[in-house]
Simulated assay, not measured.
Amino acid sequence: MIRVLLADDETMIRAGVAAILATDPEIEVVAEAGDGAEAVALARAHRPDVALLDIRMPKMDGLAAAAELRNAMPEVAVIMLTTFDEDAYVSQALSQGASGFMLKAADPRELIIGVKAAADGAAYLSPRIAQRVITQLNGGRLERVAPARERIKALTPRERAVLALIGKGESNHDIAKQLHISEGTVKGHVSTILIRLEAKNRVQAAITAYEAGLVAD
Results as ranks from 00 to 15, higher is better:
189 H>K: 07
12 M>W: 12
70 R>S: 04
141 R>S: 10
96 Q>T: 08
150 E>Q: 12
200 K>S: 11
63 L>N: 01
172 N>D: 14
90 V>M: 05
211 E>M: 06
76 V>C: 09
22 A>E: 05
193 I>L: 07
85 D>T: 09
157 P>A: 06
135 T>Y: 14
187 K>T: 12
43 A>S: 04
29 V>C: 02
40 V>A: 03
119 A>S: 12
37 A>Q: 15
216 A>V: 14
46 H>R: 14
81 L>K: 04
45 A>R: 13
140 G>D: 15
15 A>R: 10
150 E>F: 03
139 G>P: 00
111 L>M: 08
114 G>N: 03
28 E>Q: 10
28 E>T: 13
163 L>V: 12
167 G>A: 01
202 R>E: 14
4 V>F: 13
37 A>P: 11
107 D>Q: 10
182 S>Q: 14
12 M>Q: 13
63 L>M: 03
213 G>E: 07
71 N>F: 08
138 N>R: 15
210 Y>Q: 00
51 A>H: 04
60 M>D: 11
10 E>D: 15
127 P>N: 13
115 V>Y: 07
81 L>H: 11
176 A>C: 09
187 K>N: 13
86 E>Q: 15
163 L>E: 00
165 L>R: 13
186 V>K: 02
98 A>C: 12
77 A>L: 03
77 A>Q: 05
139 G>Q: 12
32 E>H: 13
